[in-house]
Nucleic acid binder design. Sequence first.
RNA 1: GGAGGUGUGCCGGAGCGGCCGAACGGACUUCACUGCUAAUGAAGGGUCCGGUUAACCCCGGACCGGGGGUUCGAAUCCCCCCACCUCCGCCA
Length: 429
Amino acid sequence: MIDTKDLIEHPEKYRASQRARQEDESLVDLVISAQQTRNEAIARFESLRAEQKAFGKQVAQASGEEKDRLLAEVKDLSQRVKTAEAASNEAEETFRSLQRRVPNPIHEGVPAGGEDDFDVLRTEGSPRDFAAEGFTPKDHLELAESLGAVDMERGAKTSGARFYFLQGVGARLELAMMQMGMDQALAAGFTPMITPTLVRPETMQGTGFDVEHDDEIYRLERDDLYLTGTSEVAIAGYHADEILDLSSGPSRIAGWSTCYRREAGSHGKDTRGILRVHQFNKLEMFVYCSAEDSAAEHERLLAWEEQMLAKMELPYRVVDIAAGDLGMSAARKFDCEGWVPSQETYRELTSTSDCTTFQARRLNIRERRTADDGAKAGTRPVATLNGTLATTRWLVAILENHQQADGSVRVPEALRPYLGGQEVFEPIR
RNA sequence: GGAGGUGUGCCGGAGCGGCCGAACGGACUUCACUGCUAAUGAAGGGUCCGGUUAACCCCGGACCGGGGGUUCGAAUCCCCCCACCUCCGCCA
């Protein structure tokens, strides 16, 4: 949810952001006029209400005929108060629904345009030259199956398409990777968390997901609960309606959870293997910090992601996502895309978003502000950010990039301590 | 699943339908006093919205788990929901 005061003071900033997102900029003016209508309605209601309260005091003190007379007089006022209140509530609702439709204004420097208009900021490492090494790389599923790491067929048998079993070295590899990520997060001062994966509609909506219309969300209608596509949802909801103390710096949480996605719009896309699945695990960084610190924190999250990718010894590139592909909440988003040899392309492995105060405003998460002189001051919304430390999808990149001509897979060195020192995964069939 | 109970400010805890934004404790902040700490005394507090303002102040409104309702008027009465507690049943 955007800051309406800011929008009214700097409408051009919001119009420009809407243009970059390739969205309707007239929304900005709709919000402004709805806000005026609302304020007028509130003022009308409140002055009537004040009158009614004053009358109420008289009624309380009066008695007998005097009281009856006052009651007769105030009945009409009561009606007018009710009418004005209803009008005020309606204007409020109209305003809020418009306000909720305005996406977070983008940061300066974010490329304009849609999905394909991203900027490549950097490329780290370089893809292996398999031709020079004298063999054609296998794809991750072929590798995984020969290693006994993934069973897609039985996943489909028990649960349907896009479900799978991780088993053997696949299961171990994922656990090792998560543990390594958790250790890195711990060293950086994060608080580890394992989060609920079913949340109430208010929590889902608070994070910016549209429960009614989002086809990506699994819903349990009978219980009015929603399966989360990322632990971000629960962690963002964790501090809803709270006032935080961030005086000693950002609050950083490393959340592990299983994630559920319907992948409704992607029939026929990435159907092979575990690249795009309905259920996977993810270790997520989540940060609550002061608004002015969010851009710097965003850089830190990106650095921690890259640190993990480096430890996995994966070639990747860093991408600045274009405005139209940011979603409602993010003012900026960096993806790290790992090289996938079988596809000869880069695929998303991490994604980090700076949601500034957008998410927190909706979730009503604030911090207490201390004035420059150290005296008391009011509250203000915090900023929230998130970023990926590891996901099941990484197995794709790890297996493919570290495969060897004989079908075995070399274990990245940093991961070995988490696998009992194992250096190579050997095919079992 | 069944029966009952509770939900008030940072915490504890009162609260006849009007004089309750809310008694009384504690915590906290400031001031006073004491050689320091402690103790004591005094004073002060929340959040949100609107008006006004450069900003503060100030004025008005809302908020007593959440949402509806009754009433001229609701923390107080009624209904629904949520959370927690106790007992019974069921179950990993």
